[in-house]
Design a protein around this nucleic acid. Structure first.
Lengths: 104, 104
DNA sequence: ACAACACATAAGTATATGCTTATGTCTCGT
DNA sequence: ACGAGACATAAGCATATACTTATGTGTTGT
């Protein structure tokens, strides 16, 4: 069940910060560290968790490893969230607007 | 940061099952137990976590406590997910379809 | 070839988490 | 009023998790 891995991965605040950084574009493991006070092994371990969850994917480039958001993870969250559409509040019309744009 | 509480709450498989049950409609704590092999105190603790996260709200009715999905929690996930719209895959058009229905 | 770099993995440790049993609080029916 | 039911809370315990230090692997530049 990859859904379990996704929510577990996002339960950690550091991993959410990392993921948010990647929302701005691809970055390597070292670049992801600055700003966050975190050791190199800790970052490596966090990235492994995000990767295993399908939230992030890697691409080795020489001795660097570039990480980027994996749309598969996003899709899993989206379809999970869709199951609760009956409870989506008015506020989420903004989200609906974005989706309609996408659809065109 | 309630966002942290939400992802932590959903990281547990039992709590996700409970939440999914509530998607079908309001239920009390005992009704939520059947099907799941879980003790009464454990369920009570899980419900407390879901409530603290804003995913669920309660309404006491006599000696029963009815629980239902809280749209606030759903909204928080929705707005979080919206931050990653640049990475939403084509597959999420299905989600867009649902939203368009809703919008009418 | 070798040193420095970028990253991953291993092993150990402290804390967080989810469970258990025991008990408390409130409500209902008789 | 009293016993039973529905739920919450407390305390203790076993496991999971996120960190640390140490080391391994592969790459780059000289």
């Amino acid at each position: 069940m990859i859904e379990a891995d996704i929510f577990k991965a996002l339960a950690d605040p550091t991993r959410r910060k990392v993921f948010e950084k990647l929302a701005g574009g691809s970055l390597n493991a070292s670049a992801l560290r600055d700003g966050l006070e975190i050791s190199q092994p800790a970052m490596s371990q966090h990235l492994a968790v995000l990767r295993a969850a399908g939230l992030v994917r890697e691409e080795r480039q020489g001795r660097f490893v570039n990480y980027e958001v994996d749309p598969d993870g996003i899709a899993t969250i989206g379809t999970w969230l869709a199951r609760y559409r009956a409870y989506w509040p008015k506020r989420m019309e903004a989200l609906a607007g974005l989706l309609k744009e996408m659809d065109q």
